[in-house]
Design a protein around this nucleic acid. Structure first.
Length: 589
DNA sequence: GCCGTTTTCGGCCCGACTGTTTTCAGTCG
C-alpha cells in the first residue's frame, strides 16, 4: 500500500498536534505544520521524491523531517509517531476540529477529566464538569456543546457553487449599502479553491459598526457566532460560515491581500516586506527597527501597487498558493491566465437521450444564449445502464439529428454548430464501449470510467492509458472519478496518464461540475509543461448546468493555464482541426 | 524543527475577539 502525500501530511499534522498537547516549543510545532502543508501541495508522488532523495530540497523540510518521512514511506511505519501517540487516545485528533478548542484546553480536559473523544467531551459538558476546570467557565461549556453540535451538523467544507450563490447575494446587498465603500470576497472562495471552508467578505467603510449591524441582521444569516466592531462571523443558510471584516479605505488593499491568502503566500509577502525594512500586516506597511537609512514605503491604493512595492507583478488570486507564483511575479513571467470571455464553445454535455433533463435543441439554444459558437454533445454509452446510455443505433440517430440541425437556418444565422460525440465508457481492461467503426463516425470522443472503481492503482492506470492509446479518443473525461466531499478519487497514477496523453495528443478535460473539478488544478502545471491540452467541459445535464463552466475557468486559472492551453478557446473555424489532430497524427504513424 | 550574504545561533507573521481574568491566555485566521 503506497503512502499518498495527503496521508504522510496528515501524520505530520498529527505529530504537530501531539507536540502541542505536550507543550513543546511552538516553533517546532509550526515546523511540522509547515512540512505537512508542503507535502500536501506536492504535484508528484511522494515515493518518487523520496526515492530520488529530493525531499530535503523542498522548502520547510529539513534533516529531521526528511529522515522521518523517508522512514515512513519506505517502511510504512514511524516509531517516533507511534510513541507520541501512545500517550493520547486516537479520538483526540477529532477534538482539534471543534471551534474554540485548541491544544491547551484539550490537554486540560484529557488530563483532568479523562476526555479522549468528542463523545467524552459532550458528556463532561452535560455533567457540568468542564466548567469547573481552571480557565473554563459556564460560557465555555455552552460553547463547546454548541461546537460539537455544529461539528456534527456541518462538518467540513462546501462545494463552490453553494458558496457562490450566497456570496453573490451578500456582496450585492452590501454593495448597495451607503456605508460600504470598497468591497470584495476573499479567502479560498476568491482563490477559487475546489471546496470552500468559509466565505470571507472584506469591506472598507468610515462607519464599520453600521456595516457590521447590517451584515449580522441580513436575512441569509441564521446565527451570529462572534461580532466585534470590525470583525464578525455568522452562520448562513446551508451552514456556511461567513466572516466579515471592515477596514478603513486606506487599509483596504492591505486587508484584501491579507484576507485573500493563502496563508503561505502571505508569509512570503511579509518576509519580502521585511527584506525592504517594512513590516506588513493587514492594515499597512510599518518601517521596522532603526528607521535610519530604511526606505519609506510608498503610498498604496490597490493590490497592484502593493505587489509592485514588493518588486512583483500583480498576482491573480487564483495563483496565490505559494506554488512558484512569487518567483514568476518577480521575473515577470506570470502567465496571462484564461478568462471567461476567452471560451468559444465547450464539449461533454448530456441530453434527454441519456440522463440529461433537456433536449438537444434546448441545450443548443442555451449555449447560443451564453454566447458560445459551438457545443459538443456527449451522451453516455450503453454500459452506463443507470444513465440510459445509448447503443450504436440510438447514437447513429442522434448523430443524424445533429447533422440535420447544423444545416438549419437558426444555426446558420447564429454562426453556431453542434459537434457529435459520446461519453464512451472505459470498460474493464481498458476496452471502449463502442467499436472503432462506430467511434469513427463521431466528431470527437470523451472517454470516462464509470465502473470498477475498486481496482488498484496499477490496474486503473493501465486501463486508462489503454483507452488513451485509442486514436479515436479525443479527450479524457473526469480523470479520477472523484465527487467532492462525497466520493474519493479512484487511485490512478496521474503523471503516467499525463505522459501518455502528451505522447498521443490526447486532450484532458477539466470537468467543471462543482461536484468534480477534475482533473485537479494541482496537476495542470505538469500537464502544460508536457504539452497536454485542456478542454473545459461542463458535463451539463441541464441548460443551467452549462453555467458551471465558470468554475472550470477558475480551476484552469489555478492551474496556470492560458487561452492557448485550452482547446475550447479556439474559434469554430479552428477547433475542428484540433479535434481531428490525434486521428490524423496516428494515421500518419 | 527549519533556515541562512549580519549563516551554525537565534530568530521564526501578526492582530481581533472571547471568556475568564482583574491584565491575560487561548483560539482563530
Amino acid at each position: 500500500m503506497s503512502e499518498t502525500p495527503t496521508h504522510v501530511g496528515e501524520i505530520l499534522e498529527h505529530i504537530a498536534q501531539l507536540l502541542e498537547l505536550k507543550g513543546e516549543n511552538p516553533f517546532k510545532i509550526r515546523a511540522y505544520t509547515n512540512a505537512a502543508r508542503a507535502l500536501e501541495s506536492l504535484s508528484e508522488p511522494i515515493e518518487t521524491i523520496v526515492n530520488e532523495g529530493r525531499l530535503g530540497s523542498i522548502e520547510g523540510i529539513g534533516k529531521a523531517i526528511t529522515e522521518k518521512v523517508t522512514e515512513l514511506v519506505t517502511t510504512g511505519k514511524l516509531p517516533y509517531y507511534e510513541e507520541l501517540k501512545a500517550s493520547f487516545p486516537d479520538g483526540i485528533f477529532e477534538l482539534f476540529e471543534l471551534q474554540g478548542l485548541g491544544a491547551k484546553k484539550i490537554k486540560a480536559l484529557h488530563d483532568q477529566l479523562g476526555v479522549s473523544s468528542v463523545e467524552d467531551l459532550e458528556r463532561v459538558c452535560k455533567e457540568g464538569k468542564a466548567a469547573e476546570l481552571a480557565g473554563f467557565g459556564e460560557k465555555t461549556q455552552v460553547k463547546l456543546l454548541k461546537a460539537i453540535e455544529d461539528h456534527r451538523k456541518h462538518a467540513g467544507r462546501f462545494r463552490i457553487n453553494v458558496v457562490a450563490v450566497l456570496a453573490d447575494q451578500l456582496l450585492s446587498d452590501l454593495r448597495a449599502h451607503e456605508a460600504v465603500g470598497q468591497i470584495s470576497e476573499g479567502g479560498s472562495f476568491r482563490r477559487r479553491k475546489e471546496t470552500i471552508g468559509d466565505l470571507d467578505i472584506l469591506v472598507s467603510s468610515k462607519d464599520p459598526e453600521e456595516v457590521t449591524t447590517f451584515f449580522v441582521h441580513h436575512p441569509l444569516v441564521e446565527e451570529v457566532i462572534v461580532s466585534g466592531p470590525t470583525k464578525s462571523s455568522v452562520r448562513l443558510k446551508d451552514g456556511v460560515q461567513c466572516d466579515l471584516r471592515v477596514v478603513k479605505p486606506e487599509e483596504f488593499p492591505f486587508a484584501l491581500v491579507y484576507f485573500t491568502g493563502s496563508k503561505e503566500h502571505n508569509i512570503r509577502l511579509r518576509s519580502r516586506a521585511l527584506d525592504r525594512g517594512w513590516s506588513l500586516n493587514e492594515y499597512r506597511f510599518t518601517v521596522v527597527g532603526d528607521a535610519e537609512g530604511a526606505q519609506q514605503p510608498p503610498v498604496i491604493h490597490d493590490e497592484k501597487e502593493l505587489y509592485k512595492s514588493l518588486g512583483l507583478d500583480f498576482i491573480p488570486p487564483e495563483l496565490r498558493e505559494d506554488k512558484g507564483e512569487i518567483a514568476a511575479a518577480e521575473a515577470g513571467t506570470l502567465p496571462d491566465l484564461i478568462e471567461w470571455s476567452n471560451l468559444r464553445g465547450t464539449f461533454h454535455c448530456h441530453t434527454t437521450a441519456s440522463d440529461g433533463k433537456n433536449s438537444l435543441i434546448e441545450m443548443a439554444r442555451a449555449a447560443i444564449d451564453l454566447g458560445l459558437e459551438y457545443l459538443g454533445i456527449a451522451d453516455h454509452s450503453k454500459s452506463s445502464f443507470q444513465a440510459r446510455g445509448l447503443d450504436a443505433s440510438r447514437l447513429a440517430e442522434q448523430v443524424a439529428e445533429i447533422r440535420e440541425l447544423n444545416t438549419s437556418k437558426e444555426f446558420q444565422e447564429a454562426g453556431f454548430r453542434l459537434f457529435a460525440g459520446t461519453e464512451c465508457d472505459i470498460l474493464k481492461e481498458g476496452d471502449l464501449d463502442f467499436t472503432d467503426e462506430v467511434l469513427a463516425t463521431l466528431d470527437y470522443v470523451v472517454a470516462s470510467a464509470h465502473s470498477g472503481f475498486t481496482a488498484d492503482e496499477k490496474t486503473m492506470t493501465e486501463r486508462i492509458i489503454r483507452a488513451i492509446r485509442n486514436p479515436h479518443v479525443t479527450m479524457m473525461g473526469h480523470l479520477t472519478g472523484r465527487l467532492l466531499l462525497s466520493r474519493e478519487a479512484y487511485p490512478v497514477n496521474i503523471p503516467a496518464v499525463i505522459e501518455a496523453a502528451a505522447e498521443t495528443g490526447t486532450i484532458i478535460e477539466i470537468n467543471a461540475s462543482p461536484w468534480r473539478l477534475d482533473m485537479d488544478w494541482r496537476w495542470w502545471p505538469l500537464a502544460k509543461e508536457k504539452g497536454v491540452k485542456c478542454s473545459i467541459n461542463p458535463d451539463a445535464h441541464t441548460v443551467f448546468g452549462l453555467q458551471d463552466l465558470i468554475y472550470g475557468v477558475g480551476i484552469a486559472r489555478k492551474g496556470w493555464l492560458t487561452k492557448t492551453d485550452v482547446v475550447n478557446c479556439l474559434p469554430l473555424g479552428k477547433v475542428e482541426a484540433a479535434l481531428a489532430a490525434k486521428r490524423l497524427k496516428q494515421a500518419e504513424e
